[in-house]
Amino acid sequence: MADTLHLTKSEIVARSTQQMNQQLHEQTWTPRQKLALTCRILFDGGHDSGLAGQITCRTEDRDTFYTQPFGRGFDEITHGNLLRVDHDLKLLDGKGMPNPANRFHTWVYRARPEVNCIIHTHPLHVSALSMLEVPLVVSHMDMTPLYDDCAFLEKWPGIPVGNEEGEIISTALGDKRAILLAHHGMLVTGKTVEEACLLALLMERAAQLQLTAMQAGTIQPIPPALANEAHDWTSTAKRHAVTFDYYARRALRRHPDCLD
């Protein structure tokens, strides 16, 4: 006879969380390895748009960050060719130049000290949705990590290489983890590289679902209380880590040169 039939939902959630924390073990990738893996994961996930898009993560001293060299696509990024730059985009380690658009990342880092990774890309469905000047609609269980956690910048401020764009985007982001940028693309943040990577994948998927559903009818909302419950259930460091490891294993099978 089952001995859990009398448990409440909150008790089952607490029990499951304890089991995950005890039994699921994540890889001990370095920040540079995680960043390189994320580039390959995002490439496979439809985030490729030539040389558009940037990914950064703070280094150990927090006043500098790693990023990919400008001129290389996400499918070419390895652990060894990442750059280390400061908030003026001055090259401190590595060969090459950072993307000038990394400037607006520095505004987000200064405004959000808890953020350790930023991903900005122009994937197909997010970009298409951005052209409609409508916010992202989260109305499916799998997308609830983005529920009430995705801001919207409804007007395009131009190319994000100046300080003005950095201030506009960081202000519009506020305390959210993600933002849809009209006529542009998307930006996600994370306390960890793993968190940011998964939110980026989810955001493109969410945009694809929204565009598909809009063709069939009117998208119906989900109950806020249940959506917030699902958001918190899936937005934990352990789930981020073990899910990232799955995508990393898949990426390494396709891109064995990633961790050169």
Rank of each mutant, 00 (worst) to 15 (best):
K191L: 01
E194T: 06
T192R: 05
T189L: 00
T192P: 08
E195V: 10
Q208N: 11
Q210E: 15
A213P: 15
L198G: 02
L198K: 02
Q208R: 13
T189C: 10
M214D: 15
V193E: 08
V188C: 03
V188P: 01
M214C: 12
A200E: 09
L202K: 12
L211Q: 09
M186E: 13
M203I: 11
E195M: 03
A196G: 06
A216Q: 15
T189I: 04
E195S: 08
G190M: 01
C197I: 02
L211W: 04
T212G: 11
A196P: 07
Q208H: 12
A207M: 05
E195L: 02
E195C: 01
V188S: 00
Q215A: 14
R205V: 07
M214Y: 07
M214E: 15
Q208F: 11
C197W: 02
A216I: 15
L187N: 00
V193T: 04
K191H: 06
L202T: 14
A206P: 08
A200N: 05
A200T: 09
L202Q: 13
R205C: 05
K191V: 07
K191G: 10
A213Q: 14
L201Q: 11
M203V: 10
A200V: 10
Q208A: 13
L211F: 03
L199P: 06
T189P: 01
A206Q: 05
T189R: 00
L201Y: 10
L201D: 09
V193C: 03
T192Q: 06
E194Q: 09
A216C: 14
V188G: 00
A206V: 07
V188H: 00
L199D: 09
T189G: 01
T212C: 11
C197E: 07
L187E: 06
E194W: 06
A196D: 10
Q208Y: 11
A207C: 09
E204I: 00
A196V: 08
V188A: 03
L201K: 12
E204Q: 06
M214A: 14
L202Y: 04
Q208V: 13
A196E: 09
A196L: 04
A196K: 01
